[in-house]
Structures are given as C-alpha cells and as structure tokens.
C-alpha cells in the first residue's frame, strides 16, 4: 500500500534525524511551511529539532538539489531530499563535476506530482539516484506529448516564430532567475555576469535580451533535465522550456532517444568527442 502524505513526512523527518545523527551531515535540504498554506519554501535543517519542521505536501515545489552548490567546498556532507527531478539534477551536477558524490547523502522520495504544471509530463516519479528511498517505486509513464508543443510551434513560418520570440523576450528583465534555478547552469562564474568580455550586454533591449535567451538555450541544450524550474521561476512568464524542448527534440531526432540526468556515464551529445565522429569536413 502506498504511503500517505503524512507517513512520508514522518519518514522524511526520521531519515533526516538519522542522517544528522551520523555526524557526517551538516544539514538536510528539504521544505518547510511559510505563512501561506499553499506555499512551501526550501529549508535547511541543521539540528534534530529543525528536522521536525521539514514537511512533505503537494506544495513542496522548489528544486532542492541546486542549493548544494551554495557551498562548493563543504567540510561535511549535504543531505538532500530528492524527488525524481532532484535526483536528475544531482546527476547533472555530478556529471558536470560540480558536486562530488561522497559529499552527498541522498534521501530519495517517490513523488506523484506537485501543484506544478510540469509534473503532469513527468517521466521519472522514482528517484534515479539515492542512498535511502522513502515510498514504494511506482511504474513510470512515458510522456507521449513531450514534444507536442514544439511540433505545433515548428509549423509556424520563420517570421511568425521570430515575432513570437521577439515579443516574449521583449519582456525579459535580465533578472537571471531562470539561470539561478537551473541545475545545468552551474558555472562558477556565468558568462552573463562577466563584464568587459563582450559576450552579454547588460542593457535590457531587444537584441541583448535575445542574445541572452539564445545563449542560455545553447548552454543548457544538451544537458537540460526538463525540471521546468526556469519557466516556473520566471517573473515575466516567458515560455523558456519551449526553447530547451526544441533543442532536446532536435537532439532526439539527430542522435536518437536522449534524456539527461540519467545515472549512466554517457557524455552530453554536444560535449563529447569520439573516434567514431565522422570528420569528412577536415
């Protein structure tokens, strides 16, 4: 029988306490309540008492994994409450060599979706990587409509597409929230934050906004784990996932079935060199 929401919450608290009790873990990253009943916030439980403040309900939406990057050189382990999407985010950052597996204690939780539209498309309700698992694994669904939106959009003429994106990016305010939330955006110093390099203009004008949008899409294109955090956090409501999904669709068309954040050793398709690469152009 599947565990109830409350059972899971209690189990999370229990596992969090156990993790802290080992003395190897500095804090447990999860969620806690706010003054709004339908908003939970990320929470770092550092003591046994604080573990009782950890919660699990359908409003626990924020990704937990990326907070591990706040301390890139930790003296102790981080424990992370990880759903399927969080575990893929962890795999992403492990593959990108930004986290060390031995610095993580992963408390996996089987998740049947939150109050977040992207959860309806979720293909990984079960965590892929974990040290301890809470809940019984459930069968995964294949999202047949993964690229439906992109396919429909592709039918528009180039002018219509440009008009659409120009309008969307005219709204961008360069807050970089999409980048901050994204587990694939894990550079020590983002290109967009550098000054006097000529990469990214700081002005909020049509050209610079579009340069940012395109560059971001290409930087995460073959590494996107489809958690949808970029689009969720955008204060201006830009359909950012549509861009990354287009990249992923093209990669699927060109390189075969492709999903990121899996626990295998495959390199991102655009970030590798193999002897089998044809080089007729040389």
């Amino acid at each position: 029988m599947a565990l109830s929401e409350k059972d899971i919450e209690l189990k999370i608290r229990e596992e969090a306490k156990k993790a802290l009790a080992t003395g190897e873990v500095s804090c447990v990253i999860g969620w806690t309540t706010t003054r709004f009943p339908d908003k939970m916030k990320p929470f770092f439980a550092e003591t046994e008492a604080e573990c009782d403040e950890l919660v699990w309900n359908k409003y626990c939406i924020n990704g937990t994994a990326k907070y591990a990057l706040d301390d890139r050189y930790p003296s102790k382990k981080f424990a992370i409450i990880a759903r399927g999407c969080d575990s893929r985010a962890i795999n992403r950052m492990l593959k990108d060599k930004q986290l060390l597996r031995e610095n993580l204690y992963i408390i996996g939780v089987v998740c049947d979706g939150k109050e977040n539209p992207i959860c309806e498309e979720c293909q990984h309700k079960n965590p892929l990587t974990y040290d301890v698992l809470i809940g019984e694994p459930v069968p995964e669904q294949i999202d047949e409509k993964r690229f439906a939106e992109v396919e429909a959009f592709e039918k528009l003429s180039p002018d219509e597409k440009y008009e659409y994106w120009a309008k969307q990016y005219d709204k961008c305010i360069h807050c970089y929230a999409c980048r901050n939330a994204c587990p694939a955006c894990n550079c020590v110093e983002c290109y967009a934050d550098q000054y006097r390099t000529g990469w990214q203009g700081k002005a909020s004008d049509r050209i610079q906004n579009q340069v940012y949008g395109l560059t971001r899409a290409f930087h995460v294109g073959d590494r996107c784990i489809e958690c949808g955090e970029c689009e969720r956090v955008c204060p201006m409501g830009l359909p950012i996932m549509r861009q990354t999904r287009k990249m992923l669709k093209d990669i699927n068309d060109l390189f075969g079935d492709y999903e990121c954040g899996m626990p295998d050793d495959a390199m991102p398709v655009l970030g590798g060199y193999t002897l089998a690469d044809p080089d007729e152009f040389m």
Binding site: K97, N186, G272
Partner: peptide, 20 residues
C-alpha cells in the same frame, strides 16, 4: 580563476592537450 572544472574541454580535445 573563472574555470568551473567541468572538464568538457578535456572531452572534446582531439589532441588530448587539456587535463584537469
């Protein structure tokens, strides 16, 4: 000072000239 150490440059180098 800016390098993140992701190592993707190591992977793409055809001459094995980059290491971490």
């Amino acid at each position: 000072t800016k390098c993140s150490g992701c190592g993707y440059c190591v992977e793409v180098c055809p001459y094995k000239a980059i290491s971490l």
